[in-house]
Structures are given as structure tokens and as C-alpha cells.
Amino acid sequence: MPSLSVFDLLAVHDFVADLPGDWITRLAGTGHPVYYGTGHRLFREDGAADRFWLLHSGVVAIDFYVPGRGDIVIDRVGPRTLIGWSWLTVPYRWQFGAVVAEDVRAVEFDAAAVRNLVDEDPELGRELTARILRVTADRLQKARHRLVELYAYPGVTS
């Protein structure tokens, strides 16, 4: 079975499928398909945010480090979603961590290249930013709920 091009992978991904074809083509030029096995750490909190992913399969655990408690999972996200938003704003440092919980197939993007596209096309930039803000708001809400859960039940660790 032939593998799909990056354009084809984006054209069927919920995050960008409804964008104009020329935008998808431009985004496709900044990404490449990847596979990561269970246990692979995509990034750690405060590391350089130089890429992001659109998941096609698998699960990623979003976490953050709590001194004395270790890495605390605040969310698990699956296919058809975005992983990583910290690449969009200065200082380009991850706000959370992420580790592969179930083998992942995704399109990985070069963040600097996408920022260049955003600078070149403000309309594309506004649309991507709005979509990323929706993901961010959802993840922050889940993090808030997870922190309440941890505070209410201190023995919970993952």
C-alpha cells in the first residue's frame, strides 16, 4: 500500500482539513511523517519548543513535573489532535511535557518554518492562532481539573 503524502495526511486531519488547499500545501512543506514508540518523550517542560505534531494515531500523555511527586499526567490526547503550542509565542519554551503513551504516527512540523508562513500570510496566521487557542484553552481547563483532583486526593499520582 503506498504511503500518503504530507499533503494527504493534512487533508484528512481534523485540525487543518477544512483550510484552503493552498494553505495545506504550504503547511505540508514544513512537515514530515514520524513514528514514535511508547515511552518516547516528545518534550519536557521548559525545553526549546522547536516543533509540533498533528497526531494521526496513538496517544500522548501531557504532563508536568511536580517536585517530590515526579511527572504528573494532566491529560491524554489521541488521534486527530494537535500536540504542542508553545512554539507559537516567545520565548518558545514548552509549558508542559509530553510522552508517547501508545505508539504514535503523526506529522511533525518545523516550528520556525511555520512561524515564517504565519509572518508571510497574516490571514493564515490568524486562523492557525485561533485554532491553537481553542486547543490551549481546552488543555488548560483539563490541567485545572487535574490540579483540583490532585489537591482533593493527594495520593493520586498519575
Rank of each mutant, 00 (worst) to 15 (best):
G58F: 09
H13V: 05
V99C: 04
A143S: 14
E102S: 09
R80T: 07
G70D: 05
P33Q: 08
L42N: 02
S3C: 02
V156N: 10
S158I: 12
V100P: 11
Y92Q: 09
D121H: 04
L27H: 02
A152I: 15
R126K: 13
R105E: 15
S3G: 08
V60T: 08
V12H: 14
D50N: 10
H13G: 08
E127C: 07
G97K: 01
T136H: 13
V107F: 10
N116L: 13
V66D: 03
L54M: 10
A111L: 07
L117N: 01
N116Y: 12
A11C: 00
T81A: 06
D46Q: 11
P154Y: 03
D18Y: 01
A152E: 15
V66I: 14
T25R: 13
R80Q: 15
W87Y: 09
L82S: 04
F64L: 13
P79W: 13
L27I: 04
V77T: 13
I74P: 00
H145N: 14
E120N: 05
R80W: 12
A152P: 11
Y35R: 09
R26N: 07
V135F: 11
V99G: 03
S57T: 15
S57A: 14
L42D: 04
W87S: 02
R146P: 08
V12E: 13
L128Q: 01
R76W: 00
A28D: 02
S5R: 01
I24E: 07
W85Q: 08
G31T: 01
E102G: 05
Y35T: 12
K142T: 15
R105K: 12
F7W: 12
R139P: 03
W85A: 03
G39P: 01
V34G: 05
D8I: 01
R69A: 08
D110C: 07
G37F: 09
V60H: 02
D119P: 00
R131T: 06
D8A: 14
L147D: 04
V135M: 04
E149M: 11
